[in-house]
Design a protein around this nucleic acid. Sequence first.
RNA 1: GGCCCGUUGGUCAAGAGGUUAAGACACCGCCCUUUCACGGCGGUAUCGCGAGUUCGAUUCUCGCACGGGUCACCA
Length: 486
Amino acid sequence: MADGKVRTRFAPSPTGYMHVGNLRTALYAYLLAKKNNGQFILRIEDTDRERYVEGAVDIIYNTLRQTGLVWDEGPDIGGPVGPYIQSERMSMFKDYALQLVEKGAAYYCFCDKDRLEELKKIQHASGMAPKYDGHCRHLSKEEIEEKLAAGVPYVIRQAMPTEGQTTFHDEVFGDITVDNSVLDDQILIKADGMPTYNFANVVDDHLMGITHVIRGNEYLSSTPKYNLLYEAFGWEIPVYIHCSPVMKNATEKLSKRNGDASFEDLIAKGYLTEAVVNYIALLGWAPKGEREIFTLPELVQEFDVSGISKSPAIFDTAKLKAINGEYIRRMSLEDFCEHAMPYIKEGCKREDIDFTELAKVLQTRTELFTDIPEQIDFIDALPDYDTALYCHKKMKTNEENSLESLKEVLPVLEALDAWNEESIHDALFALIERLGVKNGLILWPVRVAVSGKQFTPGGGIELCVILGKEESIARIKKGIEKLSAR
RNA sequence: GGCCCGUUGGUCAAGAGGUUAAGACACCGCCCUUUCACGGCGGUAUCGCGAGUUCGAUUCUCGCACGGGUCACCA
């Protein structure tokens, strides 16, 4: 599997937004192809008109583009084995099914829905598994001709072996064996002449030269049927890689139906694309070493099917957040500013502040961009805080000595010409030295006075720089006023 | 219900008969520090249960329990 031309595909149905499990499957398919210098193919499986959602195809394109999962062949760019939209391939499947009928691996079935329903009812009543009873499997040539000529509607069913076992290999789950007796004579071609998914999928994968099939493990139990199809045609069976689902908790899958987080939702919540891709890669797959932060090209290098785990993985927002924070900290200040600015503007309407300084203090304190507005809400207007905020055991501050400190600080700051981190720092520390007190005794009250908050992004000096001289001094005066009024 | 699959800390997970059972997130503590955060150091916590096989099982086998998947003229 290491060399040769590896071709993988991502074959989504355009039924809505891209959920995380789907994206992960696409990612693994992409990684496996690229790791082996192969091709990653996009095929849109849009044959279910009932579930078709307007705009869903664009979501697929946009998500793959945004995450960097560029496809080598697909509906928009074409390729040697198109068309890449399943609905445009419909006409050919029946001929393939007929080939199977010739070979005795499939047969015409004229049973109508009433009979099938009746059958199901009887089977259910007697506790049997619902399964086609082979009623039409042994019709004579004459009978078939006669019904065909009479225009009786029919489907084409796959003739499953009735005894023995079928074993197949999966790269993740190993060898799996099932009794052929449990295999249903599934429908290949529907009464309208169109193929079922199970049939179209196999034919398409073969025609498109797919060598490695990566998909959710809900397909594990139909894989023997697929293989019987490949064998009946005499086609080479692809390598199977079935992935366990991404869960929202121990018992429920992450799903569109439950309205669980989609890729778009995560981005809207302030997560970085790269962080989401990185985290998703780690959900159900473990790299060889201890490193966990990887760019997409690094993932390509690192990816190995042997690292895919069998058991389902629960989507953990806390971990995603941590990885997002890691990505944020690794950004350059310029990059961070660019990303953070919309959120900064959201939380701060004032224009006369030092945005660069603000961004600087925010960067190590941001895990999620959407957390920013709340962190900086004190800038526009000083909150109406309680003077108890001035009391801090470790700093040994209380309302009395904070009042003293602020009174000392006020003239020092007022006298400053240059207003920057260095000048304020020097002035305040000179004051601290002159007074012979601990840093905290001066600095803590300053921070409280200018922010009115218990926790702030940055210390008193940094906040003063951000707020500017006029505003800082006004807030210190306000502090003195509040403390004096007690 | 039949069949298939899974089960290592709260979460993601490494591990391949003998390990002090990695690492990350989360949590707790300490250090750094003008708060918080960052960074550094340390800590709590895991092999679902029961039988085998073996000198020795998290690792192999079988049962059980629990969880998931699948049994459509949907994809």
